[in-house]
Amino acid sequence: MCDTCGCNVTPGNAHLAHTPNERGESAVSVLSSLLTANDQVAAHNRAHCDTHGVLALNLMSSPGAGKTALIEATIDALKDELRIAVIEGDLETENDAARVRAKGVPAHQITTGTACHLDAHMVHEALHHLPLAGLDVLFIENVGNLVCPASFDLGQHRNVTLLSVTEGDDKPSKYPVMFRAADLMLLTKTDLLAVLDDFDTKRAEANLRALANPAPAIQLSARKGAGMEHWIAWLKQEVRDQRHRVAARVSLRPAIQPDGAKLHQSFGQWRIRG
């Protein structure tokens, strides 16, 4: 029984779902998410990661905010403690996967062609190219874009949204869908704050709070190392939490999604119009 294919319309109730008007038209209420097919694959991906005890993190930001540099610095800091793999999403090139592989970590590059975001199907395909057994953390580096990636669940456990200080502290207000989805906001390239007079980290955080988002905001510079310890501490805590969840056989969706999930439960059935 599921919400999308109509298999919950039985011979006993089908006449209710099927009331043609005089023009031979009948209205069927559906009320399910438009992205149901994506969400089902995403749930499958998440279950796949849970089975292998892997924490999956979706890294989102505009292009050039420092996602790959953050992954490189994280591998340098944790390569002796955690086993990491990376899925890279870009429109073209293998550049980012090559950078990650140069650190001795498995990476799979998804080139999306013209698609401006990753979706759950692409990530599912990529998962088959990575050795999940024995992994602790899977980074999914989304296509650099503050708009579209926020709408597609990939099967991650947490969303990490990067905002580099060269971009402006009003980005959470300009891209509310993206920043509302963040479980953690990283203010990156903070070594450049010294030469920027128009980025106020407090204002960036206040703009995040105005989206009713309680996510922590961590300032760091992946290149210079400042603040990396706070990010590493957050990451290690998430890995521990994921291990507890796996042991207890519970799964976690990004913070924004429980509401969406509730919506699907209450609306995700065929509403039969008499």
Binding site: E25, S26, V30
Partner: peptide, 12 residues
Amino acid sequence: DELLLASVELLE
């Protein structure tokens, strides 16, 4: 934040 398919009218 809804993105819902509400209803579909079918031509039989």
